[in-house]
Amino acid sequence: MDYKYIEQLLDRYWECHTSEEEEQILRSFFAQKDVPAHLAQYASLFTFMKEAQEERVSDDFDDRFADILAEESLRHDVVRTQARTIPFRQRIAPFLQAAAAVAVLLTIGGAAERAIGGSQQEEGTAAPVVANTYIRSDRVAEVVTPVESKNEATAIVQPDSMTRTQMGVDAQVKEN
């Protein structure tokens, strides 16, 4: 059998010119039993490399490591809750949120106040609002008073009883 290829590979192996695949070929070649005498001196090296791949951790390694990992896991959780650094932006976020909420409330409040104020004024001049509810008559008297005075309209109010009054409408009807 011609061993030229193997000899060439071996020469290149010592010079570090072999690829991973070629080195695998050498290991496989030297793993067989009938290696020619002139190459036999190197056979032990390649079989040693192959055997060295079989080294394993001891059988109880996994169990021991599971315990260590469980302990470490507890420690890690504690460390994380104790020493987590919070960036400045994140720290002031709740205050910013609160400030934003207050600002929104103030804006809405301001707008609502203005809107209500405006409608009350409109009510005063044209009185188009229909208050179609049961109101205590003494309050109706209060509400209706400005309408009466400005539009010279009269609302008939019976002070002692509950009256269903169509405010404004009565006034407008009377106006017409």
């Binding site: 060295a52 791949q53 080294e55 951790v57 001891s58 390694f61 490591f65 260590i68 990992l69």
Partner: peptide, 28 residues
């Protein structure tokens, strides 16, 4: 990777017990 790590650690520490300790520490 434990066995691969073990073989490397063993090659450096030259002691099986120490090599296993190194593997545990690496994994952690």
């Amino acid at each position: 990777l434990k066995d691969k790590l073990f073989r490397l650690a063993l090659r450096i520490t030259l002691n099986r017990e120490d090599a296993e300790d190194m593997v545990q520490e690496t994994l952690i």
